[in-house]
Structures are given as C-alpha cells and as structure tokens.
C-alpha cells in the first residue's frame, strides 16, 4: 500500500470500481484530483502513487497532470482566485474588475500574495456568462462559483476566507 491508498482507502477503492477490470488507467484523472485535495498541487511523490495504483508509467501520469489546467505541479496560494476574462465577460467589464482586484491585493494576475494565501489567475469561460463579473475559487480539490461580483464583495469574501484558513492553521 502506498501513501495515497493509506490516506484514502475508501476513495481509491470506489474510484477503481467505476471502470472495467482491464481499464484501470481510467482512474488516473480521478486519483490526481484526490491527490490535490490536501496540498492543492500534485507532487512527484503523488504522481508515483497514482502510477503505481493504475500500473502506468510515471511519465504517462505526469503528462496528464501537465495537460489539464486545473492540475498544478507546484504549490501556490491556498486560495486560487480565478477570474473569468473570456469573451462574454470581457464584454461586461471583467478586465476592470480584475484590475481592481489586482490593486486591492497588491499583486498582478499570476502572482501570489506575500502571506501565501491568494493566487490571482485569469481563466477561460466558466459557464456563468449571464452573471458577470464572476470568479471561481479553487481550494484543494474544491471549486466554487462566485457570481455577480464587485471587487469589494470579492475582497470581503477573501478576508473572511483568509481568516478562517489562518484559524485552522494555528
């Protein structure tokens, strides 16, 4: 048993049960999601575990981890603040909203705040184009939508989230 199986025995078993016996490779993506739950990124060690469970090479697992945008191979802020600036949002002021957030947080898109809590990112359409501005928060393997935002509303939400994350840490 490797560390992923030890940590999440039930989840690993239920993921493997979804696919035919000779198709365990299909478990790679669900298992990668699982490895991201705590750390918010996928380490080499975690990729090894996934490779072992699915009996695939680490290169295969690494190429999949690198292909999909929601998988991250290095740690960033605990909260990934992902603002949609795609076509429909651009038409309704997403750039201004992003710029306000950027000023409020004192970082540029792609950067992480000094306390390591927030990474500001731009993303493509998240299927919420009728409630612009919109951002998505990715924390571990949880993703939530936040619609009809103002930069004030978002910064307030961030303050309360950051406080509760810091609370957990102490």
């Amino acid at each position: 048993m490797n560390s992923l199986e030890k940590k999440y025995p039930d989840e690993v078993a239920s993921i493997l049960a979804r696919y035919p016996e000779d198709q365990k490779r299909a478990a790679i993506i669900p298992l990668l999601h699982l490895t991201q739950r705590d750390a918010g990124f996928i380490s080499i060690h975690a990729m090894n575990d996934v490779a072992e469970i699915t009996r695939q090479s680490i290169t295969d697992v690494a190429s999949i981890a690198g292909y999909y945008t929601l998988f991250h191979d290095h740690p960033e802020g605990k909260i990934r603040l992902q603002v949609c600036t795609d076509v429909a949002c651009m038409l309704r002021g997403a750039q201004e909203y992003l710029a306000e957030l950027s000023r409020g947080l004192g970082i540029q898109p792609g950067e992480t705040t000094a306390d390591g809590l927030v990474t500001l990112e731009e993303v493509k359409c998240v299927a919420a184009c009728d409630h612009v501005p919109v951002f998505q928060s990715q924390i571990g393997d949880a993703i939530e939508f936040h619609e009809n935002q103002t930069s004030q509303k978002t910064l307030d939400w961030l303050r309360s989230m950051s406080a509760s994350i810091k609370g957990e840490g102490s």
């Binding site: 795609d86 076509v87 429909a88 493509k124 359409c125 299927a127 919420a128 184009c129 009728d130």
Partner: peptide, 11 residues
Amino acid sequence: DESEPGTFKDR
C-alpha cells in the same frame, strides 16, 4: 463538459 464561451444552459 459545457465549455463553449457564452454557453451556460447545461449548468
């Protein structure tokens, strides 16, 4: 998979 920019019906 609903990902076409401008599409939010399946959701």
